[in-house]
Amino acid sequence: MTKPVEGLNVDIDVHHKPEGLSDRIAFGFVKMLRFFADRFFAKRYGHRAVVLETVAAVPGMVGGLLQHLKALRRIRDDQGWIRTLLDEAENERMHLMTFIQIAQPNLFERIVIMVTQAIFYNCYFFLYLFAPRTAHRVVGYFEEEAVISYTQYLAEIDAGRHDNVPAPQIAIDYWDLPHNARLRDVILVVREDEAGHRDVNHAYADQLTRKPRDKAQVA
């Protein structure tokens, strides 16, 4: 029998303490989103994941686009920001494709997805355009909450309150999981992805916090 996916190291306790007004606004915004998500989805973590990943796939694409345009305008190297952000967007899209197969959202939930994405895209675009540091901090806090949500999802599965169904083939192919992988294995690798995005976006926000003379051609 193929050994299940285990041993993925994720520090679920990582939290960037808000420093200054920008961080507090970002943190408060994410906590507000978390409040509504908790009320709307309760413990339906599969459906929560679908909407979460719909939103999570937006920032990387927006950031990559605006960083690309900025690099062209300033005729300078992007130091890998564009590729990192676009890879993040693709990774989050694969999360969405995976959980759509698991949760099978109904028509109403699909409408919620479309409306949420439309609103969030426009809001995030202008936020990144005028305040990229805050935008990256929003994503960092958003991913902190994602790590917590997926940890809770794992606890529900381990407690037997959610079925540990077979992993969708799309997830097995994308993460190169064992052929007999289950939902729990998928959540482990997704949570690891989210922790990586959390750390990258907090690091980018920290770089943008530095005084201009301390930056080495960062955004």
Rank of each mutant, 00 (worst) to 15 (best):
Q207I: 08
N201D: 04
H179E: 14
A26F: 08
A56W: 01
L188K: 04
I148E: 11
G160V: 12
H68D: 08
I170K: 06
H162A: 14
V200P: 10
I148H: 15
G160Y: 00
Y174G: 02
R133Y: 05
F40Q: 03
Y141C: 00
R133M: 01
R34P: 09
C123Q: 12
V62H: 02
L86S: 09
L183I: 05
Y141Q: 06
K43R: 12
G20R: 03
G140I: 07
E90R: 15
H197M: 05
N164R: 10
D193I: 01
L107F: 15
M114K: 11
D185P: 07
S22T: 12
R210V: 10
G160H: 01
Q169H: 10
K70A: 01
V189P: 04
V112A: 09
V55G: 12
G140A: 01
L107A: 11
L85S: 07
R48S: 07
L69G: 01
K215W: 09
F36A: 08
R161C: 01
L183Y: 08
I119G: 02
A118S: 06
V55N: 13
R191I: 00
T209I: 14
K211T: 15
D173M: 04
E194I: 06
R39I: 13
L129A: 01
R110T: 00
A159T: 00
I187C: 03
P166V: 09
W175T: 11
Y141F: 03
H95L: 08
F125D: 04
D13R: 15
R210P: 15
D163I: 15
I113R: 15
I111A: 00
N164F: 09
R39H: 12
V51D: 04
P166N: 03
H16A: 07
G80A: 03
L85V: 08
I170C: 14
V115F: 04
E19D: 13
K3G: 01
V50R: 10
G196P: 08
V165L: 04
A171D: 06
F41D: 01
G64C: 05
D23W: 10
L69H: 03
A205M: 10
L177N: 06
I100D: 05
F40E: 04
V5E: 02
D158G: 04
E192F: 03
A135R: 07
T2E: 12
R184D: 14
D199M: 06
I100V: 15
D193L: 02
D163C: 09
D173P: 15
S149D: 12
H179S: 10
Y174S: 05
Y174T: 12
G63C: 10
Q101P: 02
I111V: 14
N180S: 06
H179P: 08
P212F: 06
R73Y: 06
P105V: 13
